[in-house]
Every structure is written in C-alpha cells, then in structure tokens.
C-alpha cells in the first residue's frame, strides 16, 4: 500500500516538474524577439519537460501494477531528432537572413549552408570523399 502511494506521489511530482519546464519553454518561445534565440527555449526545455512527463507515465504504470518502459524509446527518439530539427530551423534562419551575420572562417572557406548553388555539386562530392578517407 505504502509503495503504491509513494508511486502516485512520485508521478504527481514528475508531472509537476515536467509541466513547469514545458511552460517555461512556451514562455521563452513567446518572449524572445530574435528567431535564433527563440530556437533555444523549445529545443532544450522541451526535452526535459517531455522526459519528465514520460517518467511520470513509467512510474504511474509501475505504481498501478503494470510494467511499461517503452516510454524510454520515445525519449531516445526525441533526443535523436531534436538536434536535427533545431539544425534545420537554424539553417532556414541563416537562409532568410533573420539572424546576426555569420562570423568569418579563419581560412577562406565558407559555411556549407551559404555555399553557392552552382558550385554545390563538385565541392560536395570532394568533401565526402575527403571525409571518408
């Protein structure tokens, strides 16, 4: 009985922490004015917020006599995909020119997002060859 009650309390606490982080992410999304800084709030605060909600789901299933751990998979997929979507949004911001100008490179290369389209075919093939070698 006591273990069950403890489980329910733990579930409630995890739900509360998760909700707080999710709402902070939403506040950040609304508050920041620049598209690049706005990107930071949901990518980071979102992962822990959703993670805590999924942890609550696991503890709830164990407290009520079940056993469910496939929430771990959701967490793993979130952690793998969040950086990729953030990277795509950052690239879109760079293309639209809504961020601060990019810093120059020490050697006279360019950032790969800004590589001119007409030159794209040759250097890219070369780069992958070099990366593999």
């Amino acid at each position: 009985m006591t273990l069950e009650v403890l489980g329910i309390y733990a579930t409630a606490i995890f739900l509360l922490i998760g909700s707080v982080f999710v709402i902070v992410g939403v506040i950040g999304l609304l508050k920041f004015s620049d598209p690049m800084t706005r990107l930071h709030a949901p990518t980071k605060v979102g992962t822990l917020g959703i993670g805590m909600l999924l942890l609550a789901s696991i503890t709830h299933s164990f407290a009520t006599g079940g056993s469910s751990i496939h929430e771990l998979l959701i967490m793993a997929f979130l952690f793998v995909t969040a950086p990729i979507s953030a990277n795509f949004i950052a690239k879109a911001n760079i293309h639209r020119g809504v961020c601060a100008p990019l810093p120059d490179l020490p050697d006279d290369g360019t950032w790969s997002t800004l590589t001119p389209v007409e030159n794209e075919r040759a250097p890219r093939e070369e780069a992958t060859e070099g990366g593999r070698a």
């Binding site: 950052a90 690239k91 990019l102 360019t110 780069a127 070099g130």
Partner: peptide, 9 residues
Amino acid sequence: VSADLSDDG
C-alpha cells in the same frame, strides 16, 4: 545550438 558546418568540415 549547432547551426552549420564549414564546407571543408
């Protein structure tokens, strides 16, 4: 947030 890679990587 990592945003981009230089063209030579």
